[in-house]
Design a protein around this nucleic acid. Structure first.
Length: 279
DNA sequence: CTCCAGGTTCCGG
DNA sequence: CCGGAACATGGA
């Protein structure tokens, strides 16, 4: 594989590609093979130096968010022991800049699913309905467009093991494909307004909307609260006794984690998911 | 076998 | 605003 160097950015590549943001990266040689939007990419990191196939330079710089001032971002995290523990575990992890529809759609399919199964759904959808991409004899697949999915029947998607999520994904695809919901317009809105606009789509509640905003719309303050984050918050940030409501959690997260709350959230999520011990 | 997973939606208090 | 139930599927 012929590659070019992208220098030595602060980046934990392997961690970043397997932190539950994207779900389609396959091991290949010393690196990874996958699609960044419509660009087929091989990416590897050797002793801190980042390499990609030549045609992927621009796509990789954007997708890996090498323009995020990561050292500064990590310095804005709160100094409490829980966040700092997650930081030392995940240092160098970046929030990927994924295509808007891809981020939104993959998280519509994520509800009540383990990461491994979200990956399986993503791969099936890509192979059956995504555009073929070629890289040195390998075939990769882009995430299917809203138009491609909008043309299907719910039964087609159920056949991809989406279960009840099939109707959600199909409904969302049709609203986006028809132009009734315009993701580029949403990208121009302030955070709160953008969240409300996304929640007009079926299968998009507060959590999925925040995932889409964080991973696809460059809203680095968006703070998705899933079962893992809620577990950490309840165990480590709130007193054991007493009720903790969703409203309280929302208010706390908006205040406590700063302008890059979404980054802190992703570090907390990944750390919790990989180190949590029962009991 | 049971339990749970990067939730959303709908319905009564 | 809050809690509960239904919703599919597969890995642990």
């Amino acid at each position: 594989m012929k590659t070019i160097s992208l220098g030595k950015p602060l980046l934990a590549l392997d961690l970043t590609l397997h932190s539950g943001q994207s779900f389609h990266w396959d091991p290949e040689g010393d690196g990874w093979l996958g699609a960044m939007g419509d660009t087929p990419v091989y990416v590897e990191q050797i002793q801190g130096e980042l390499f990609v196939n030549r045609e992927a330079r621009a796509a990789a710089t954007s997708y890996l968010a090498l323009d995020h001032p990561l050292e500064h971002i990590e310095s804005t995290f709160p100094k409490d022991p829980v966040t700092q523990e997650a930081l030392s575990f995940c240092r160098g992890m970046r929030i990927l800049r994924q295509p808007k529809w891809e981020a939104l759609a993959t998280f519509i399919t994520s509800s009540m699913k383990q990461v491994a199964h979200i990956a399986q759904i993503s791969q099936t959808l890509r192979k059956r309905y995504g555009r073929e991409l070629f890289l040195e004899g390998r075939t990769l697949y882009a995430y299917p467009t809203p138009e491609a999915l909008a043309a299907l029947q719910e039964s087609d998607l159920r056949a991809c093991a989406l279960g009840y999520r099939a109707a959600h994904l199909l409904g969302a695809a049709r609203l986006v494909a028809s132009g009734e919901v315009n993701l580029e317009s949403i990208a121009q809105m302030p955070d709160a307004e953008a969240q409300q606009a996304l929640r007009r789509l079926p299968g998009v509640g507060e959590k999925v909307a925040n995932c889409a905003l964080l991973f696809g719309f460059e809203r680095l303050r968006a703070f998705p609260v899933d079962v893992w984050i809620e577990r950490v918050l309840r165990e480590r940030y709130f007193p054991k006794e007493g009720k903790v409501t969703a409203t309280m959690i929302r208010a706390f997260c908006a205040k406590a984690f700063g302008p890059y709350g979404g980054y802190a959230q992703q570090y907390l999520f990944h750390h919790a998911r990989l180190t949590w011990k029962k009991g």
